[in-house]
């Protein structure tokens, strides 16, 4: 039998994906199916696992003893319970704050060194993004289960909620401006209504994500920073308590969602 090379080449340029598929939710689902098994976040996950297990820093140790909340070295299921209260630091931390904490306490990096490159730029890769991809991927298929047991966890949630509704700045914007009604969009970008449980679940459970428009896995910190920039708010400090509080509110809003990230998005 002759081999027939019926080739369908999917040359996915950024332009194509943006214009043709960002239109509505149904198209996005077709798009997702199209890209099944084609999420480059997988490579980030692999790189992240290597970084997790590689000895580094002045102390020359790996992150394998890092306690993400479920005991030293437990990665599986850690993310669906974050942010959470950590008794060793007596505060609530999100994943990225905790990672930085581990890099400082275990590996001996300074805060500056540990947070030097939170987001990849052309030609300058971030260590944190792959680590986040690796850790979050280890919660795939599990249900979002942030606990609000400790008083500080409750406090973070309440502050996060306040921040969500906080309208201010030159444009009077807040998270609530764009994310409190159904079926709205800015330009062609759909806006999830985060006050609606189903929509909040769907969105939260698919971050971090490999962003085709940027060619990188982007973390929750990155996502929120972009929103805050467009709200005309000041630049948030990386891995700060304010962002953790907002993340806590969003994570709790997504309670029960089956976690499915790192996903692939525009």
């Amino acid at each position: 039998m002759r081999l027939i090379g019926q080739a369908i080449l999917l040359a996915l340029t950024m332009q194509l994906t943006v214009s043709a598929f960002a239109d509505d939710a149904e198209d996005n689902d077709i798009y997702a199916e199209f890209l099944e098994d084609g999420n480059p976040a997988e490579f980030s996950e692999i790189n992240g696992e290597e970084l997790w297990k590689t000895k580094a820093g002045p102390n020359n140790v790996s992150l394998e003893q890092c306690d993400l909340g479920k005991g030293p070295g437990v990665v599986e299921g850690a993310y669906v319970e974050l942010p959470r209260y950590f008794s060793d630091v007596n505060k609530v931390m999100d994943l990225e704050q905790r990672l930085i904490h581990c890099r400082m306490t275990l590996q001996g990096l300074t805060q500056e060194e540990a947070t030097k490159q939170p987001f990849s730029k052309p030609g300058k890769a971030s260590d944190i993004e792959p680590l986040v991809a690796y850790i979050t991927a280890a919660s795939k298929g599990m249900k979002m289960a942030v606990k609000l047991e400790h008083p500080m966890e409750k406090e973070a949630y309440e502050i996060g909620k306040k921040l969500f509704f906080h309208r201010a700045g030159s444009h009077d914007f807040g998270c609530v401006t764009c994310h409190s009604a159904d079926n709205k969009r800015i330009r062609l970008q759909n806006l999830p209504n985060l006050l609606d449980k189903k929509q909040a679940q769907k969105v939260y459970a698919t971050w971090p994500a490999y962003r085709l428009s940027q060619g990188e896995v982007r973390s929750m910190q990155h996502r929120l920073r972009s929103c805050i920039r467009q709200q005309r708010f000041p630049n948030p400090k990386y891995a700060s308590d304010a962002i953790t509080a907002l993340t806590m509110y969003l994570a709790k809003s997504a309670d029960g969602a089956v976690y499915a990230a790192p996903a692939i998005k525009r």
Partner: peptide
């Protein structure tokens, strides 16, 4: 607490000032 966090966790730049946010 929100005011305290905004003051500690954001950076002013140009016309985008923390005061306007708080």
């Amino acid at each position: 607490e929100v005011v305290r966090l905004i003051n500690s966790d954001f950076k002013s730049k140009g016309s985008v000032q923390i005061e306007k946010f708080v």
